[in-house]
Design a protein around this nucleic acid. Sequence first.
DNA 1: TTGATATATAACCATATGAGAATATAATTA
DNA 2: TAATTATATTCTCATATGGTTATATATCAA
Lengths: 116, 116
Amino acid sequence: MARAATTTDAFNAVAEPRRRQILDILAGGERPVNDLVRLLGVSQPQVSKHLRVLREVGAVDVREEGRQRHYRLNALALKPIHDWVKNYERSWSERFDRLDVVLEELEGEGDGGGDE
Amino acid sequence: MARAATTTDAFNAVAEPRRRQILDILAGGERPVNDLVRLLGVSQPQVSKHLRVLREVGAVDVREEGRQRHYRLNALALKPIHDWVKNYERSWSERFDRLDVVLEELEGEGDGGGDE
DNA sequence: TTGATATATAACCATATGAGAATATAATTA
DNA sequence: TAATTATATTCTCATATGGTTATATATCAA
């Protein structure tokens, strides 16, 4: 089997840095394709193809207006990524530093509770 | 050009669900390879190859002990992912709901300030 | 030493890729 | 209508992939 398709989920889609760049731009507001082409300095077909992937995973929505397609961010599609990586945040937070490993081994299972 | 190597960065490495699973397990504490093989129900070579990728992006560290290799999470390697996706969190937070889009268009650029 | 155990690597394969180039489609303008 | 503009699609290609199988390497046990 080959690698999973980029359109499989948000994780695969945003593994490509250019697509993250596109989302970063769209975070500032809706944009027609040509804006992205200029801002990124990438060929138009490349931009369209990246947008297709982002569309397929639901990370962007399109609004048609004349011959332009205005793309808009749909950040909700990125929530699974945030939800997953969020659980690792404590590991690099200086509050837990190196201690968390020890604590987790002591805990075993069962939630002892904690702030936040 | 083909897709970027899985070992290019954390984004590419964790696009593969099995590798996220491995990290999730290691979040509970250090584990020898065979534990992962049993817990995942995946062939040993597969696990070793996934671990190699995670090692190359710095997401895991190894400790050798006899003939076992104990793998341990290094969550700091996931911070770039968190840092990136964090900026989108407000978009699905109910506090901003649909309003954020309007606000961002009004802002244009320049930080008007806000709580938090 | 011989055998078993733990892990890594290599060889093979089917497949999806990102980039580029060319072209298709649709909307606008002259 | 013809030309132009905006965008999407198709084609081709080199490449890295994830899984499988087989094998290599190292450690431990008998």
